[in-house]
Simulated scan of single mutants.
Amino acid sequence: MCLGIPGEVVEIMTDRPDLAQVDVSGVRRAINIGLFEPGEINEGDWVLIHVGFALSKIDEAEAAAAMDFLKSLGDAYADELTALRSSTID
């Protein structure tokens, strides 16, 4: 099962402005933010991530509600975090 997972943007990559470092439940990784206009996504913003792409910008309350729901799924959420830990964008 593939899920959209909320993540907090912690850094916009200066050498690759189409990438941002996000934190998802303590897992940090680069995601593609190329679907947004430059400057539309900033550090501290929350985004909904699917297959390595930020699909939408969400507020912190939406992110918290989504995380609560995802945690309630148990194994599916754990599997998604495992996949996130092992994935990379080059």
Rank of each mutant, 00 (worst) to 15 (best):
M1A: 11
M1Y: 07
C2Q: 09
C2T: 14
G4Q: 05
G4V: 01
G4W: 00
P6I: 06
G7P: 14
E8R: 08
V9T: 06
V9W: 04
V9L: 10
V10P: 10
V10N: 07
V10E: 12
E11M: 13
E11N: 13
I12L: 15
I12Q: 05
M13V: 04
M13N: 01
D15A: 03
D15I: 01
R16C: 08
R16K: 10
P17I: 02
P17N: 02
L19I: 02
L19Q: 07
A20G: 05
A20S: 05
A20C: 06
V22T: 11
D23A: 04
V24H: 04
G26A: 06
G26H: 02
V27N: 10
R29M: 15
A30Q: 10
N32R: 07
N32C: 14
G34T: 00
L35T: 03
L35A: 09
E37G: 06
E37L: 08
P38L: 01
G39Q: 09
G44D: 14
G44R: 13
G44A: 13
D45M: 07
W46S: 02
V47K: 01
V47L: 04
L48Q: 07
I49S: 11
V51R: 12
V51F: 12
G52T: 09
F53Y: 12
F53W: 06
A54D: 09
L55H: 06
K57S: 11
A61W: 01
A61L: 11
A61P: 04
A61M: 10
E62N: 00
A63N: 05
A65S: 05
A65R: 00
A66E: 15
M67T: 15
F69S: 07
F69Q: 02
F69E: 10
K71D: 12
K71T: 09
S72R: 00
L73C: 03
G74N: 13
G74S: 14
D75G: 08
Y77M: 07
Y77W: 13
A78Y: 06
A78N: 12
A78E: 15
A78C: 09
E80P: 05
E80D: 12
L81K: 08
A83T: 14
A83R: 15
L84K: 06
R85H: 10
S86W: 12
S86Q: 14
S87L: 11
T88M: 07
I89K: 01
D90Q: 00
